[in-house]
């Protein structure tokens, strides 16, 4: 029974993709776009924070690190609910007009995955920091040069953290649903339906086959992005 569903799901996914179902294409592209933007934003903020946290030594650094580590596991529904309350027009951030928009989802997912980027960046910095610092120092590098070298050496770990962050964003439901609202108007320009929200909707409507087909596509996207990043890393960062 369950296996039958899985096989049907994969079959259905292939059919949908081959037929280029326009609704599906629209939703899948939106998923990648919204979570991609979230990952880029999280990287812009999280990598510098992680680098500073990884390189510097100050009081409260350990506490800060454990806070970010704890936030790694924050439940997305809780996050979604809090964001909903903040972003609702009557809420403190209501003036931004982000509720039930793509940007709103990106913003929420960015907050969700920021701890991933920060924590993973910190640990990849720390894993190379000591050796590289001593080496660069004795070879005559100044503080800024050393910093850049450490970041360069941690780059594959940092890229990995961004990919992991993207994967979490694209696969989460709580924020996409509560902040996004699963809005879909045929031909509309402000839709917010993404893969996860449509999966839950089709499950609620009892259309399990279609939901599984979408699930298969979601998994395929996650795998593909990871594979591409691995390939690019080998090619660009190279030598490792």
């Amino acid at each position: 029974m369950a296996w039958e569903y899985v096989v049907n799901g994969i079959n259905g996914a292939i059919k949908l993709v081959v037929n280029g179902d326009p609704e599906l294409v629209d939703i899948a592209i939106r998923s990648v776009k919204v979570s991609g933007i979230a990952a880029v934003l999280a990287a812009i903020i999280g990598v510098p924070v992680g680098v500073v946290l990884g390189l510097s030594r100050f009081k409260g650094r350990g506490l800060l690190k454990s806070i970010f580590n704890a936030l790694l596991g924050i439940p997305t529904v809780v996050m979604g609910l809090i964001l909903y309350l903040f972003l609702a027009p009557a809420g403190p951030l209501g003036f931004l007009g982000l509720l039930y928009t793509e940007m709103g989802i990106s913003f929420g997912q960015m907050l969700l995955i920021l701890p991933i980027v920060i924590s993973f960046t910190v640990s990849s910095i720390e894993s190379v920091e000591r050796e590289i610092r001593d080496l660069a120092l004795t070879l005559g590098a100044n503080k800024i040069q050393i910093m850049f070298k450490i970041v360069e050496e941690s780059l594959s770990g940092i890229v990995l953290s961004i990919i992991a962050a993207f994967n979490r964003a694209v696969a989460e439901l709580g924020i996409a649903l509560m902040v996004g609202g699963n809005i879909f108007v045929r031909g509309g320009g402000l839709n917010t339906r993404v893969l996860t929200t449509s999966i839950q909707m089709y499950v609620a409507r009892g259309e399990i086959d279609y939901a599984l087909a979408l699930g298969t596509i979601l998994i395929a996207i996650v795998f593909t992005i990871t594979a591409i990043s691995n390939y690019l890393q080998k090619k660009w960062v190279g030598y490792d």
Partner: peptide, 12 residues
């Protein structure tokens, strides 16, 4: 939408 150019966003 066709009639008034207004998009309806339904939140179920």
């Amino acid at each position: 939408k066709e009639k008034y150019g207004i998009e309806l966003h339904f939140i179920p």
